[in-house]
Write a protein that binds this DNA or RNA. Structure first.
Length: 565
RNA sequence: GCACCUGUGGCCAAACUGGAUAAGGCACCGGUCUACGAAACCGGGGAUUACAGGUUCGAAUCCUGUCAGGUGCGCCA
């Protein structure tokens, strides 16, 4: 249940009764002694009405009916409403129950989008796992999510790669390392004029639909894509081959995009290139920033492909929202593409087109990230290291664990730690790549959450608890139990917060809060011994609800749990 | 030159979009395992939220200016 929404509706009903307008502005209590939630909207509403906020707050409380929801509503400070939830109401809000969204929307999520000319490196982590998590949460809320992996599988660089592939032989095992393959091809391209010429011809043949060229291109794409799929599988990312709709697939639509723009009178020729000039990209001095959609040599650009993609996503897929998880450096590009799409009427379903940018990865020196050798850290290497460190720790803490269990658990813990390190940060800012921080197992990390989960499982095992036989809910009135119950009940609100603006770190923050409240509770409240039957049952129910919420919350981040660690 | 983003203890950072005494984590100092799991818990020190003005009951958040860093700006994606 969405508690904030429920509280907000009741307060707004009270607003209406006394002739006020505006949002209730519900949020968690700033300090525990204030209660569970607070409403900040009274002060703003009073201001708009030109009235004294304390008096208005008194009127609101007078008109407010919180029967069965809040046990206490107090006025504080300049006009805050401090709300303490009714324990019976809390008991009704079960753990891990997700309130279905209404209306359900069709949401296209564009994420990962690796360049198939090269290998995936740590820079691809953010788009892949942030997009995947938001997609999972939207789905859990009952939205129809259509994943689109807009892979870079087209363009001039493929002429170079195909020519090199041709020269080195079809069964070249050099393709085992795409990074090396690309570098070698580039070196040849820069040094060998004949190779350059043949590469350009290859591009022409490819774009003209030459059968042999296409077959070779397809083979290259398949190999490269299989490298990506390995990474996806390891990361437990939900992307599948069927979600691929790469740049190449829009190739045939591009002339039509240009034609339509011309038909709309939006096209201007400038220095031989076809451009769209829009007033909203005019500077103070009057210069207009162009969006180039066709090069002077007739070739198409990134913007053209993205326009075609918008037509497909809104026209064929009927999207209500289209979410783009890409680097912040593309912010201007997307602003322009969205603006052109609106001007040209390409947004057929009037979808909300939303760029979800994220910061760049930096080195310890604050400069764009490079390894000492000047290269990139491959994603596969990072994951290997994370799994190894997790395995070492697992063995040290659980000497009797079988090798097979160590292997599976270290995968879940190691990779979970890497994913959580990224997901738990606000995606807007740049971040510094740091092995130790990325693969950390203490503090606000995935292992902390997984540890809380494992302890609960161990508690049930030790106590011989028949979890299924426990009552669905119980009423907790005393601290710290009550506070834990309040936190469990806030799950749905946390999810809502994530999908509104595409920030999984809100869910991480929520889960961390939940796990740490559980750890406090667990330390202070004996469960199996030293508690009477009623208390024991009540505490076991809280433990089970915590475990379910942790498990489900982590699953929505694409992170697993283990029984022992 | 123009535009966008960022600036919060030594480090990583949150603040639910204008709310109450600026969370939390690492690191540091101290305490807690013959005890339902110490990957944990309890306590401690450490902040003029880059700077200067302004708006108002109230500003890390909004406005103006300055400084610092980053990114983008006609035929790459």
């Amino acid at each position: 249940m969405q508690i904030k929404q429920t509280l907000g509706e009741h307060i707004q009903a009270a607003f209406a009764q006394i002739g006020l307008e505006g949002p209730a502005l519900i949020q968690g209590a700033a300090r525990e002694e204030f209660g569970d939630y607070q409403a900040n909207g009274v002060m703003a509403a009073a201001k708009r009405a030109g009235r004294n906020p304390r008096e208005v707050a008194a009127d609101v409380v007078q008109a407010l009916d919180m029967e069965g929801i809040a046990s206490q509503v107090e006025i504080a400070g300049p006009g805050f409403l401090n709300i303490t939830l009714d324990p019976e109401f809390l008991a009704k809000t079960q753990a891990a129950k997700i309130h279905p969204a209404s209306p359900s929307q069709t949401v296209v999520t564009d994420y990962s989008a690796p360049n198939l000319a090269k290998e995936m490196h740590v820079g691809h982590l953010r788009t892949t796992i942030i997009g995947d998590s938001v997609a999972r949460i939207l789905e859990a809320q009952g939205h129809q999510v259509i994943r689109q992996n807009h892979v870079g599988d087209w363009g001039t660089q493929f002429g170079m790669l195909l020519t090199y592939l041709n020269d080195t032989g079809d069964d070249s095992n050099e393709l085992a390392d795409l990074e090396d393959f690309y570098r070698a091809a580039k070196t040849r391209f820069d040094e060998d004029e004949d190779f350059q010429a043949r590469s350009r011809e290859a591009v022409v043949r490819l774009q003209a639909g030459d059968k042999d060229a296409l077959a070779m291109w397809q083979r290259f794409i398949d190999i490269s894509m299989s490298h990506c799929q390995e990474i996806y599988d390891r990361l437990e990312v939900t992307l599948l081959p069927e979600h691929i709709r790469g740049e190449s697939q829009y190739n045939n639509d591009l002339p039509q995009v240009i034609n339509d723009l011309r038909g709309q009178g939006l096209l201007t020729e400038s220095d031989g290139a076809q451009c769209v000039f829009l007033d909203e990209f005019k500077s103070k001095k009057g210069d207009i920033l162009p969006v180039i959609v066709q090069k002077s040599d007739g070739g198409y650009l990134y913007a053209t492909t993205d326009l075609a993609a918008i037509r497909y996503r809104t026209g064929t897929l009927h999207a209500d929202r289209v979410l783009y998880f890409t680097d912040a450096r593309q912010a201007l590009h997307f602003r322009q593409v969205f603006a052109v799409a609106e001007a040209a009427g390409f947004n057929h379903s009037h979808a909300s087109l939303e760029h979800m940018p994220f910061g760049s990865m930096l080195g310890a020196d604050g400069k764009p990230f490079k390894t000492r050798a000047g290269g990139v850290v491959k994603l596969a290497e990072l994951l290997d290291e994370a799994e190894q460190r997790a395995a070492t720790l697992l063995r040290a803490n659980n000497p009797d664990l079988a090798d097979e269990d160590v292997r599976s658990a270290s995968r879940i813990i190691g990779i979970g730690a890497v994913k959580y390190a990224d997901l738990s940060k606000n995606r807007n800012s740049d971040y510094v790549f740091d092995w130790d921080q990325m693969i950390s197992f203490e503090g606000n990390t995935a292992p902390y959450l997984q540890y809380a989960y494992a302890r609960i499982q161990s508690l049930f095992a030790k106590g011989g608890v028949d979890v299924a036989a426990l009552p669905a809910t119980t009423v907790s009135v005393e601290e710290p139990e009550r506070r834990l119950a309040v936190t469990i009940a806030g799950f749905d609100d946390a999810l809502q917060q994530v999908t509104e603006e595409g920030f999984p770190h809100f869910l991480c923050g929520y889960l961390y809060d939940l796990a740490s409240r559980f750890s406090q509770f667990y330390d202070h409240c004996p469960i199996l011994q030293g508690a009477d039957d009623k208390t024991r049952t009540r505490r076991l129910v809280l433990a089970r609800q915590t475990a379910e919420t942790l498990q489900q919350g982590l699953a929505l981040l694409g992170i697993g749990v283990v029984q022992r660690m």
